[in-house]
Design a binder for these strands. Structure first.
Lengths: 217, 217
DNA sequence: TAGATTGTTAATCGATTAACAATC
DNA sequence: TAGATTGTTAATCGATTAACAATC
């Protein structure tokens, strides 16, 4: 009904790289930056940067550029990185541990409030301050969180492909609104649940296909 | 000069998911599959699947479909997954370990022939059968490989952003033809070196932006 | 033969790029 | 004022989807 026209995904995907650059510029003491400069730095066209920035609602000043603080805030706001996203992480292997240990996502609002694994060997172990809870205990764990008015919005899936659907089902059951899936599977989820797949094999495919094409020249 | 018209990247990125489905079908004892079926399974249009498959050069039979073995082979060939890709991996943190321990990439031809880290605590440790070599010893390590006719084609970068450029420079120095970069940085590389960036923050950005949009309805 | 499916050409859609006016 | 930069409209490009003919 109020079907807001959806914003171009490619633009959204480029925003984090702008943000990184802006934060570096800020750290260097700069206050203003032109999109001509951003474009040069990242090897794109300045029009594209301008269009991308426009979707965040911020505006710049001709001849001057954009205010860095304002722009950083607008991008973070637009991406939802100024709010906390309470999340469960399921699967504390190397990949799961990598996410828990990477501080970048914390500054993007990712707030892990529960860490699960079905491997008994991990039971009770602590990773980056999070005690690993048995996967089967997720439901009761959610209840105790609810009692403290903590609600889980996101599920991060870092289990092997074979277990991913089962994990997704449980996450849906406890009421997450979105799933961030690192397993190479197409998950079946209710329409209302947002799903973003991290495409590692897909990335590798593009890489090796290009290497092969180079070979054939 | 012989600028072969470049193939659509989105199509290349969809091929791995077809491959997964085909291998499952094969494991179930099937020999033939229609793209109508693939499309249904993955929630896409069948024309798209047909176009995507066409770029691999394989052809199907009307009313019947595609031969699964033939199709698997054609996709793997097209992606370069039927050949070994000798690679160095730099950065044996959780992310690097995750890649080393994930068998999927091995079946895609990824052949790790050297694992490096500058952390002295890791020196001499073994991860998935690979002894961690000090980063500074890479050059001499390459020489011993060359003596055995082993040539490194790819560098996998799983170090923090702050170290990524330095690692990339060294990899270029030893002559890799491509770089698979997991660090959130735009690397400066010679034109001739292929670079594929894994976009984790970019994926998170799309996710949280959609969650935010849902909030605002 | 009828129907399902492939393969291909044409139409549509959306994103990128070009052109240019507005502005500090 | 001149020049650099933003903001916007138009043109181009490429990918997706629709339409349909070919075929087993």
């Amino acid at each position: 009904m109020f079907n807001a026209k959806s914003l171009p995904v490619p633009s959204i995907q480029r925003l984090p790289s702008y943000l990184r650059l802006l934060e570096e510029a800020k750290a260097k003491g700069k206050h203003v930056v032109s999109c001509t400069h951003i474009a040069e730095e990242l090897g794109q066209l300045s029009v594209q940067v301008r269009k991308d920035l426009a979707i965040t609602g911020v505006s710049g000043r001709p001849k001057v550029g954009y205010n860095i603080d304002e722009l950083i805030n607008a991008i973070r706001d637009f991406l939802g990185w100024n709010q906390q996203t309470n999340a469960f992480l399921v699967g504390v292997g190397n990949l799961g541990s990598a996410i828990l240990n990477y501080d970048g996502f914390v500054t993007h609002g990712l707030n892990i409030v529960g860490v699960f694994d079905s491997n008994p060997a991990l039971r009770g172990k602590t990773v980056k301050g999070h005690t690993v809870v048995p996967f089967d205990d997720m439901l009761e764990y959610v209840e105790t969180l609810k009692e403290n008015d903590v609600f889980v919005k996101l599920g991060v899936i870092t289990v092997p492909a074979s277990a991913a659907q089962e994990v997704a089902d449980k996450l849906v059951q406890i009421g997450v609104r979105a799933v961030w899936n690192y397993a190479p599977t197409v998950l079946e989820l209710p329409e209302s649940v947002i799903c973003e797949n991290v495409k590692l094999s897909e990335s590798f495919a593009v890489l090796t296909n290009r290497m092969r094409n180079q070979d054939r020249r």
